[in-house]
Nucleic acid binder design. Sequence first.
DNA 1: AACTGTGCCAACCGCACTGGT
DNA 2: TACCAGTGCGGTTGGCACAGT
Length: 303
Amino acid sequence: MRVARQTPAGVAKMECNSSELRRGPWTLEEDTLLTRYISHHGEGRWNMLAKCAGLKRTGKSCRLRWLNYLKPDIKRGNLTPQEQLLILELHSKWGNRWSKIAQCLPGRTDNEIKNYWRTRVQKQARQLNIESNSKRFLEAVKAFWMPTLLQKMDQNSSLSSSSGALTNSSQSCRNSTLPITTLMYNTNNHFRESSSSVSVTSPLDFTKISLQQQPHEITQLPTVTSVYDVNTLCSNQIPSETYYVDCCGHDMEGFNPGAMIGMGRGSFDISSLSECQVANGDWTSDDMADALWNMDDIWQLRE
DNA sequence: AACTGTGCCAACCGCACTGGT
DNA sequence: TACCAGTGCGGTTGGCACAGT
C-alpha cells in the first residue's frame, strides 16, 4: 500500500494559495495529529475536529482521510477472490451504491471498491466492447468471472485445508466430490468462508448457485441448490440471479474467454458457451498468496 | 537513458440529505 | 418554512509507479 504522496514540490503546488487551508496529500504529521485527536475525542463534528486538532484541513478532508486511510480496522492489500465475487454480485443488484456495497465488506472502503470497479471491471468491459452496466456484461461476469473466482476460492480453501483429503479441484473431480466454497453471512452482516461439498455424476456437471435474497436478508450466500448439466447450461435458458460453477475446469470442455473474445467484439452470446475451447486453467500452480486475481487471467485477448 | 502510455488510488468536488434552530 | 452546518455519497481528477518502446 502506497503512502500519501508527499513530494515537496507536489505538496507546495497543491496547497491552497487563497487561504490557510491545506489540500493535497497528507503528511505524516497531519496523520498523527488526526489519529491522536480521534483516539482521545472520537469521531464526528469534523469541522470542529479539524480546528481543535490543529489541522489546516477542511472537516470533509479529515473525515475522508480517517475513513479511507487511518481508521484502524481498514483492511490493507488486494481484494480477495471472495471480496471480488461479492462486489460483482452486489453491484449487479445495487449498481454504483458503493457505500452500501462497502458495508458488506468489512474493512473495505467505498472508495476502494469504487476504484476496483473502475480500474478492473470497467477495463474488462471495455475490452469486450460491452457496456459495464449492461445486462450482457452482467451475464458475461456471471458466466465467466464469478465461476473462476469461485474456483479460485475453492482452491484457496483446499490448499489451506490441513486434512489433505481434498487438495485441489482436479483431485476433487476424480473423487466425484467437489468442495464448494461459499460466502456465509453472520448476523452482523460480515461474511466468512465455509466449505461444503456436492456430488456430481460427470465432469460436465455444473453446480447451480442461486442468490435468492437481498444481501441484508441473506443468511447464507451463495446456496448450493441443484446440479445442472451442460446441456441445460447451454440452452440459453439461464435464469437471472444465477451463475454456474465449473467445478473442474481442467478436465471439462469448458470456457475459454479468449474464444469468447474471438466470437467478435460485441457479439457475446451465452448460448455459444458449448463451442468454446478447452480452458487452460493451471490453477493448482497458482500462488494462492497472490490475492490479486483479476479477469485478465482468463480473458486474455486474442488479437 | 529518455520518453510515453497506462494502471492505480488517494484526494477533491459537487450535490443531496439530515437535524437543529 | 427557511436557513445553515454537518455529514454522506458518487463522480472525477491528479500524480506516482511502472511497463513498454
